[in-house]
Amino acid sequence: MKRQAANASWTLTNKRREALAGYLFLAPYLGFFLVFLAGPVISAFVTAFVEWELLRGTYRFIGLENFQLIMEDDLFWIALGNSLYFAVMTTVGNVVVALFAALALKSIRLGHTVFRVVMYAPVVLSISVIGIIFSRLLAPFGLLNAGLELFGHNGFDYLADPNLVLPSLSLTTIWWGFGFPMLIFLAALYAVPETLYEAARIDGAGRRQILWRVTLPLIRPALLFIIVTQFIAHIQVFGQPYIMTNGGGPGYSSYTIVLHIYRNAFSYYHMGYAGAMALTLGVVMFIFALVQFRLLGRYTEY
């Protein structure tokens, strides 16, 4: 009896030891998570309900007043509209370009690795570099207009034309970032069993039918993942307008919501107001992600 009790106690201790080891392994991540993610999120949440003017040194609880200010702030709504337009345009563009690039890569044998590297390479560049390169490329006397001049066209002022600026930033972003979704699509395409394609071909399906009836339904989980993550990433666009359009110009044509939050927080020091806008943006992103899951998730076969 005594031996049994001793064994049980030993087993318990051993389990505890195992648990302790587990927690120890988790500790570094948990530490970082608490300090750099959970802490700032909670802090930002609290900040949304205070008037916090850094340079003036004021800090007081004001309830929902910051949210009332958001309703009156026309720039918030202009910036949110621009961000949504940019996010939709860039997400769609990225998905289409990445999907076709992945399909093309899967179908070729010669130079497969080379093209994969070349197409992915822009992703590793920083936005500062991309911004500077494309600012020069898209300048009135830049390379793109020089090319158009060969065909007798005067070209465009891509970054100074209110109607062209966001599409230009979007194209820049697509070129910069389509490599990542392309790799995800490529992995998903390789996961589709070859036998299904053979069966489809035996049944007389053409290329387009195979794409629409076999490939796309089977890579839908990857599609959903890419759409949701790309949308969340692109609605938070910041570096492109910050570098390429002098912080949102011409006028407010490329002024985005994260720029507005950044300026209020770190240029004007309205920390409380910026916190409230960040929280509002978080809610908007959550709603959009939910809608995307609802719309695309129901047709997804896992």
Binding site: P162, G251, Y252, R263, S267
Partner: peptide, 21 residues
């Protein structure tokens, strides 16, 4: 509030001189 005022004025001139407003 110079930085804020200056940003507002910069955007206003830009809107006017590109024909947006």
């Amino acid at each position: 509030r110079f930085t804020e005022v200056e940003n507002i004025m910069g955007a206003a001139y830009s809107s006017i001189f590109t024909g947006q407003q």
